[in-house]
């Protein structure tokens, strides 16, 4: 395929400015069996995240006497992309994403509160349009926040990348395919601690700085959307009936 011109007159093919996020919608508590769950639409991405536990670590020898172990499964449905039917079972990409996602939440969850236990995080990509690992982490963070599992912060994730000389935020699938760099990052916003960072392509040091700056600015927007989604069901009821303080 011929490489399309991704930026025309300063705008991207979907009409966005370089530093503009796609629209994000999050709804919580969509899987009743889970301790916490969220459904997210991020542009054309559709993602479900569910959290189970803490429960007894199984098999028992996998338990850690000092903390909870986190298990994470990121997976894409076989019908989630425009290409051919996806193969079932985790591929190498999914295994790597599951690993780095798990590491984000090992940082965030107060794992030391639950020795020998296990917390499971499931991320299912129903429809994919670029940036699914970032969407998955962002959705899983919301699911966790509604679960009652204690955590230090509500992390967000987003990708920055480069098209020619332009650094852009939140690459969709087409941009991802033809971009000159892609850098997914997850951050705990309270202290701006970087929890995940991957990159491929090419970035000069200046472009790298710019990408990180753009990610932090986008993070303010994403954090706000996450917080509103988490609070909404509770606030709606408070607005209706008033709050009870005991």
């Amino acid at each position: 395929m011929e490489k399309p011109q991704l930026i025309v007159n300063g705008l991207r093919l979907d009409g966005r400015k370089p530093d503009e996020l796609r629209p994000i919608k999050i709804e919580t508590d969509i899987i009743k069996n889970a301790s916490g769950s969220a459904y997210m639409e991020w542009g054309n991405n559709k993602v479900i995240a569910a959290v189970y536990g803490p429960k007894e670590a199984l098999p028992k020898h996998t338990g850690d006497p000092e903390k909870a172990i986190i298990k994470c499964v990121y997976s894409m449905t076989p019908f989630s992309s425009l290409e051919e039917h996806g193969r079932s079972g985790p591929n190498r990409r999914a295994i790597e994403i599951s690993k780095v996602t798990k590491e984000v939440f090992e940082n965030i969850i107060l794992v030391e509160n639950f020795p020998r236990s296990e917390i499971d995080i499931f991320i299912e990509i129903l429809q994919a349009d670029g940036g699914t690992r970032a969407a998955g982490i962002t959705a899983a963070a919301v699911a966790l926040a509604t679960s009652g599992i204690p955590m230090r912060d509500i992390p967000y994730a987003v990708s920055a990348g480069r098209v020619g000389d332009t650094v852009i935020i939140d690459l969709n699938k087409l941009e991802d395919n033809y971009s000159d760099a892609d850098m997914p990052v997850a951050i705990a916003p309270r202290n701006n601690e970087i929890l995940l960072m991957q990159m491929d392509g090419g970035l000069t040091r200046e472009q790298f700085k710019k990408a990180l700056e753009m990610i932090k600015n986008a993070g303010k927007v994403i954090t706000k959307i996450q917080r509103e989604a988490i609070k909404k069901p509770y606030e709606d009821l408070i607005n209706k009936y008033g709050a009870k303080y005991e």
Binding site: V100, E103, E106, N107, M183, A188, N191, N192, E193, I194, L195, L196, M197, Q198, M199, D200, G201, G202, L203, T204, R205, F208, L212
Partner: peptide, 15 residues
Amino acid sequence: NIRAIQKGLYGSFKE
């Protein structure tokens, strides 16, 4: 150019 980055494990980094 930076060509690849991979952060690993549970710890975090400051900018």
